[in-house]
Computed example of a mutant assay.
Amino acid sequence: MTTAANLPKTYKAVSIPAPNGAWEIVTQELRAPAPDEVLIRVHASGICYSDHFAKLGGWPGMKFPCVTGHEVVGRVAGVGAGLSSKDREGRYKLGALVGVGWNGGYCGRCEPCRTGNAFMCKEGQVTGFTFDGGHAEYMYAPETAVVSIPEEALQKASYAELAPLLCGGITVFDAIRTAPWKPGDLCLVQGIGGLGHLGIQYASKLGLKVIAVSSGSSKKSLALSLGASEYIDASATDVVSYVKSLGGARLVLCTAPYSQSISNIIPAVGLNGTVTLVSAAVDGKIQVDNVVLNMSRAALRGWCCGCSPDTEQCVKFSTLSDVKSIVKEFPLEEYPNAYDAVMANKARFRNVIVFP
């Protein structure tokens, strides 16, 4: 085991004592990391909409009290004895810049892991759900959950701006990267929020022609500045008819969590196109006219976060391409208000807890 000098005996965290309980600022004892753990001093922890699963207590395997937070950026403060000397002197060296995302590690032995689907590991955990997450001054993470971040990333973005890449960023990055398309193809990004503002940047940087869709005209300038070629006000334009007049979208990226909005935009998909859902509809089930998909030979799929190696690629691409989260910073004590703003869709666009 290796730990930094002068570590405190205790640390503060945001905890929820039971399902539907009130958020509490608690003091916890700092212990030595377990053999396969990395102790991280947290510098920034993004608030994801998925934190509400912990609030409701509906996630399988959850234990209370629980510290949430799965968009974490910090520095290594301790390393378990089970990690190799190469790791302790390399990627987990004390002070190394690291992160932790939704995926809480993987075994490397089960069938999903052996077939390249480690994000679906049968023994895998979820950060902030099955073990305490990053809304705390310190956190412990399984070593396979830890994301190595190059120091040069801090030359392009702050800790707070990097944090949302660990969940929101990797989700939309891989959702776009893994879909079938060619440079110059049309990508329709539905929703300009925590996921959508990143989706516009990634799609345009990867070589797609981006049309951004939202309701009203207030986000037009932002969408264009982020890389969209065009903006459509869904309250004033028939989006599907317009996009169909252009030949349809090769990729439709649905980022707004509203079932009717998602259902309405699916028919904008073009020949051999793909509709990818990266948000979770919170107000009901989406509806699909299968004839629309049949006649266009289009595909409808969902997408969730990848594991740590995927996220490392996302962070590298974001750094090289100047993709950046738009964030608002909050101290730990203001977490309840920051969380409520995310749930009420008032965050512009990612609320992040920061630590000195």
Rank of each mutant, 00 (worst) to 15 (best):
I232H: 11
N272K: 12
S215Q: 11
I170Q: 15
S217W: 10
A203M: 03
L56P: 00
L277K: 02
L97F: 04
A54F: 04
K244E: 09
V147Y: 03
K220L: 12
A228D: 13
N351V: 09
G133H: 09
A157Q: 14
Y11P: 01
E89M: 06
I326G: 13
T144F: 13
H70M: 04
Y11W: 08
V67M: 02
P150H: 01
G248K: 12
A13I: 12
H43E: 08
S308P: 01
G306M: 07
A212Q: 11
E312S: 05
M343C: 05
K316P: 09
K328R: 13
G199E: 01
S245K: 12
R177C: 00
S245C: 02
G108P: 11
V240C: 13
L97P: 03
S245M: 10
Y92K: 12
V275S: 08
A160N: 06
V38T: 08
C110F: 10
K209Q: 11
Q287P: 00
P164R: 12
H135V: 15
V342T: 07
S229L: 14
T255R: 00
A268E: 04
K12I: 10
E334K: 12
V352C: 04
T276A: 15
Y202I: 01
G306C: 02
G134D: 05
F119N: 15
G248I: 07
I47G: 06
I40V: 15
A77M: 09
P60T: 00
T311E: 04
A141T: 03
G194D: 04
E71V: 08
K86A: 14
A163F: 04
T311Q: 08
T2M: 07
V282F: 14
E111M: 14
V42G: 10
P35M: 11
V240F: 09
G184M: 13
V79L: 09
A5Y: 09
P112C: 00
G90P: 06
A281D: 04
L293N: 07
M295A: 14
Y335P: 07
T2G: 03
I25E: 15
A5S: 14
T144W: 04
I286R: 08
A153Q: 01
C307I: 03
K220H: 11
A344M: 03
P336G: 05
A212D: 06
K156C: 03
P8C: 05
I170C: 13
L253R: 06
L293C: 01
V288H: 08
P142C: 04
V252P: 04
N351F: 13
P8Q: 08
Y138V: 05
L83P: 00
L320R: 09
Y335W: 11
S225Y: 12
G46V: 09
G124C: 04
R301V: 02
E230V: 15
G273P: 01
D185Y: 13
S15I: 15
I149W: 00
L277P: 09
S263V: 02
D322K: 06
S235V: 08
G99H: 13
T3L: 00
G101W: 12
S308H: 03
I16L: 14
T319I: 04
E152Y: 12
G284H: 07
G95V: 07
A223S: 14
P17E: 05
S45K: 11
L206G: 01
C254T: 13
